[in-house]
Structure formats: structure tokens, C-alpha cells
Design a binder for these strands. Sequence first.
DNA 1: GGCCTGTTACTCGGATATAAGCTGTCCGAGTGTAGAGGG
DNA 2: CCCTCTACACTCGGACAGCTTATATCCGAGTAACAGGCC
Lengths: 158, 158
Amino acid sequence: MSEGVEWAMHCCLTLDWLGEDRPVPTAKLAASYELPPAYLNKQLQALVRAGILTSTAGVRGGFQLARPLDKITLMDVVTAIEGSDEAFHCMEIRRRGMGAETPERQLRVPCAVTTAMRKAEMAWRRALTAQTLADVRANADRHAPNLGDSIRRWYARG
Amino acid sequence: MSEGVEWAMHCCLTLDWLGEDRPVPTAKLAASYELPPAYLNKQLQALVRAGILTSTAGVRGGFQLARPLDKITLMDVVTAIEGSDEAFHCMEIRRRGMGAETPERQLRVPCAVTTAMRKAEMAWRRALTAQTLADVRANADRHAPNLGDSIRRWYARG
DNA sequence: GGCCTGTTACTCGGATATAAGCTGTCCGAGTGTAGAGGG
DNA sequence: CCCTCTACACTCGGACAGCTTATATCCGAGTAACAGGCC
């Protein structure tokens, strides 16, 4: 899985911790995690296309959350970065070779391998959809109550 | 996810449907699904290293199942092909940049993002471990009872 | 006729090219700001 | 003093390289079968 997923989630959380009305530029976010700014920008663009963030150009431009954290599931973020197609993509190899002469009727039913793999992938997607970024932030705040303050201080300084 | 997972599962099922005592060479399996023989061989080698198949060299050599299908979970196959490391690998970017000056005590607790992602991945792994290739074959047989016969006939001819 | 031995064809196994996708970078388009100038 | 206009610095956005991983291929090592010769 792409590293951008981790970046995107941490950035969304940071934006929420900051709680600013004004947008935050990529350079700030990148510096706060020592990430390559231009590449992070590319990932944040994907979040904008997915409707998770909003971007504003110009001098005081940057990114901000498009909606509250409890309306953003982990699935949303993963889909925004990785795309919406499944990890296991059935190539229907059962139709090839010796499967070419099997009657169409048998091939109408879904491939058993695909069905089994899809079942697992659905469990994954359900678990991702069941968790919102608000839940993640709540867990982080529980273990480190002053993390938000640290972040706000760092951004106020830099 | 690598295409080899699909290939590996179909090949294991085919080996079981054939039910032969003698090993089946890669060329036969590859021809039955129109797969590149040498590359399929590479994938089957991975299954051998994982203890799912056994290989025998020589003239009448080939591959055969190392244990019955109900002792092979989908997780076993996926791990054999893809490796055992998690799809989401936490890079601990929280430690970088502004996280560098946070006290070690706070960083002792696991990253909330990682915890959430791991929860989803565990759901995926559980679903894969809960299903054996025997279950997959049972589903396939239920929808297409004579599929095994078709395969055996094709192999008897070729 | 049976047994041994050398050859041979066949199969796995790993080392080697090629293609694709992720990672990283750069420059242009657009925009709000700030400052200077005029009223 | 306030308004307007202009130039500018800043930011996003997409186009362009570098590199790791997946895909595909080829050739050598080893082995079992087979044929021929010998006992």
C-alpha cells in the first residue's frame, strides 16, 4: 500500500488539531513531518479530488478539511489515495485455456476464488468504513491529551 | 495485489480436482489456464517454499499438494506469494519533524493511525484464515458439479 | 533372459532482462495581498 | 485620509524524471526413464 495513505491521515488529523479557519499550506504540513513538499502536495490534491479537503490558491492559500472528522472514514482516505478498485482483481483465468470450452452457463456464476477473496476484502473495507478519523483522533487524545497543544505550539512558532 | 495469488489458488484447486498421485508439471498447469509457463513455475516455487506444494524433479516430475485442501487457508497462499509483511507499513512519521521533540513517553504508545489500520488489516487476515481451499472447492462444486470431470477430461486428452 | 550402465529427454530452480507503478521534482497558472500613487 | 490600481510573492496544479517492484524469460543442475550392451 502506498505511503501516501499514512501521510494523508496524519495531515487530516493535524489540520483538525490546529482548528484554524484559514487554510494551511503544503510547505507547513510537509515540514511538520519532514516529508517532500511537492510530493505531499500531490497526495493532498488527491484528497481534494475526493472531496475530503478543500484547496485555496493564492498567497494565504493552502488546504483545509472539507467536513468534520467524524464524516471522514478511513475508507474515504484509502480510496482517495489508492483508488477504488479492489486489491485482488480477478483476471478470470478460469475462462482461458481449458475453460474456453466450458458452457457459458457455468461461467455465469462468479468464480469461487474471487468470491472467497472478495469476502475477505469486504471485511477489510467494512473495518475501514466503520472507523472515522474522529475515532482515530479520540484514541490519540486519550493516550496523549496534550498532543494538540504541542502541534499548535509548533505551528505558531514556525 | 500480485496476480500470482489468483494463479496459485486455481492451480491448487486444479491439483486437487485431478486427484492424481503423480506430480503435475508446470507446463500442463500453465497450458490449462494459458499462463506463461516459466513465470507460473516461479510462483509455484514460492508455494513449495511455503510448504503448500511439493516438487519433484526429473522426467515425470512436477508439483503436487503437500497436504489436503482443508489444511490450506487462503492466508497461507497469500502469504506464500505476497510475503508476510503487512500491506500498511507504518513509517512512524509522527516522530519526524515536530514529533522529534515530543517526549519519548508519548511515543511509547502505538500510533493511532497505525492501530486503526492494523485493526482493518487484521479483519482481512482473519477472513482469509477462516477460509480454506476446501471451502472454495466446495462452493465451486456446488455451482458446477461436473467441473472436476471437465478438468480431468482435459488433462487426460492433453 | 535378466541386470547393469550410459545416454537422453524432461523438469525444477535460480539468475537474468523488461515493463509498470510508486516516489520524487520542477515549472507554469492563478490569486489574494501589499504597497504606492492619486484623489 | 481613503480609494484604486498595479506589481508581486505565494500557492496550488499538473507535467516531467528516477527508482523500486512486479512481470516475463532463459539457461543450467539434477533426475528418472529408457535403450543398449554385457553377463
